[in-house]
Design a protein around this nucleic acid. Structure first.
Lengths: 236, 236
DNA sequence: AAGCAGATGATCGTATACAATTAGATCGTT
DNA sequence: AACGATCTAATTGTATACGATCATCTGCTT
C-alpha cells in the first residue's frame, strides 16, 4: 500500500468493528453465502462476531442503507429480497450511470490500469473453468469487480460508492431471478469493452457496456412470483 | 397486504424516531441553519430531541452514510466540510446522472406532473422576490426540490435517493464555496428545462440541464483555502 | 376437530452504565 | 515567560438492562 490509489482516500485507517462486521456480511451476501430472505438476528450476528448487540445492530442498520438488508420494525433484519420492480430499477440505474462512468474512466485510464484490468479478466477466466462452490463464488465477485474497478479508475469516489451499492444489489437480484447457471455476466464482453477503450473507441465501449448490462438483465426472469399460495403450489 | 407491489416498498409507515432526527438534521443542513464544521455532539443532539444518546448516535451514523456528516473516531460528528475535490466530484456525479434522469422522467411525465413542476417554479419565483432569512432558506430548498421532483417523476426510487444525497451535499458545497449572494441556481433555467420537456425536445432539455449544473458550479470558488496558517493570515 | 383467547418465549427498541480516549487546564521546570 | 508533563473533565465506544412488541404454543370453547 505504499503507493497509491486506495481510491477511497485516507480513512483514519482502523476499520471500526462495526465496519468490519458490515463488510463481512456484505461480502457474504455478494458471494451468495447468504440468501435473500435469510434472517439476521441482532443476537446471532453479535455472537458470531463476538460483539454486543449494539454493534451488530449498527452494522445491520448500515447495510439497510445500502439496500442489502431490509429491517422490519420490531421484526428484525433480513437479507434483502428485492422485488422484480426493484430489480428493474437497479438495472435501469446501472444503464444510466455506467456509460458515464466508463467515459470518465477512459479519460483518466493509465496503461497500468489497463494491464490490471486485463489481469482481472484473466483471473475471471481461470475461475470460470474451475469447478466447485468456492470458484463459483470467486467468479461472481470477480465479475462484479470489473465494473467496480472501472468506477475506481474514474476517480469519482461518490460514483464509486454508488456502483458498489448497485453491484452488490445486482448480485442479490441475480441470485433471486437469474436463470442460466452461468452465474456471471458474459466474461468475453468485459474483454470487448477493454479492447474498445484501448482502441480509443469510446462510443463503441459505451454501446458494449449497455449491451452487456442488457445481457445480464435478459437472463433474469422477473415475473411476479407471488409465492403461489399453497393451493396453487399443489394443484398441478 | 392483499395485493401488491407498492413500488417504494411499503415502509411500515411510522417514521421511527431515529429517522425523524435524521430528517430534521438533514433539513437543517440543507437549509443552512447548520454550517459545515459544526460539532454535533451525541449528547446535545439527544437532548435536543429528548432521546437518549443511542438514538442520536444512530441518526448521526445514518447522516454520515449520506455524506452530510463526518464522524471522526473518538472525536465525534461534525457537519460535513466537503473539500474542493469532493465538491467537484459531487457536481461531476450530477452531470453524469441528471441528464439520464431527465430522459427517464420525460418518458413518464404526465400533464399533472408538469403543472406541479410549474407550480413549484412559481413558488420559487415568489420566494426569490421576498426578503429575509426564512425566505432565503425556503428558496434554497425549493431550488433543490425541482431536481428532486424530476428524479421522483423518473420513477426510479434508487436514483431518487441518490439524487437526494447529491442535492443535499450540493447545498453544503454552495454554502462553503458559493460566491454570489444569489444563493439558488438560476431560477429561469428551471423554467427553460420544463419548456423543453413540454416541447418534446429532449436533447435540448438535457443540454439545458448540463448548462444549468455548470452554471451552479461556475459560481463556486473551489481554490484550496488551506486556512492560511495564522502567519499568512496576518502578514499582508 | 376447528378456532380463538390467553399465556409464554424470543426479539427488538431504547435507556443507562461503565470503560476508553481525547481535549483542555493546571502546575512545575528551564 | 515559555514550554512541557500531568491531571481533570468531557465525550465517545461498547456492553448491559429493562420495557415493549411480536410469534408461537397451549388449552379452552363451540
Amino acid at each position: 500500500m505504499k503507493s497509491a490509489a486506495k481510491a477511497t482516500p485516507a480513512e483514519d485507517s482502523a476499520e471500526t468493528s462495526t465496519q468490519l462486521i458490515r463488510d463481512s456480511i456484505r461480502v457474504a451476501i455478494v458471494e451468495r453465502r447468504l440468501s435473500p430472505g435469510t434472517k439476521l438476528s441482532e443476537n446471532d450476528v453479535g455472537n458470531l462476531f463476538n460483539v454486543s448487540r449494539t454493534l451488530a445492530r449498527a452494522a445491520l442498520q448500515a447495510l439497510s442503507y445500502e439496500g442489502l438488508v431490509s429491517v422490519a420494525k420490531n421484526r428484525g433484519a433480513f437479507v434483502a429480497y428485492p422485488s422484480p420492480d426493484e430489480a428493474r430499477q437497479i438495472f435501469a440505474a446501472r444503464r444510466l450511470v455506467e456509460p458515464g462512468i466508463l467515459r470518465e474512466a477512459a479519460a483518466r485510464i493509465t496503461p497500468d490500469d489497463i494491464s490490471q484490468l486485463k489481469q482481472l479478466l484473466l483471473e475471471e477466466g481461470r475461475l470460470m473453468s474451475e469447478r466447485g462452490q468456492t470458484a463459483r463464488r470467486a467468479e461472481i465477485k470477480a465479475s462484479g469487480d470489473f465494473h467496480l474497478r472501472l468506477a475506481e479508475i474514474s476517480g469519482n469516489a461518490i460514483m464509486q460508492r454508488f456502483m458498489e451499492e448497485l453491484v452488490a444489489r445486482s448480485s442479490l437480484v441475480i441470485a433471486l431471478y437469474g436463470q442460466s447457471t452461468v452465474s456471471s455476466c458474459g466474461h468475453s464482453e468485459h474483454g470487448d469493452i477493454i479492447a474498445a477503450i484501448e482502441g480509443d473507441d469510446l462510443d463503441r465501449a459505451c454501446r458494449l457496456m449497455l449491451h452487456h448490462i442488457a445481457h445480464i438483465e435478459a437472463d433474469l426472469d422477473l415475473r411476479e412470483r407471488k409465492s403461489l399460495g399453497l393451493k396453487e403450489a399443489f394443484e398441478l
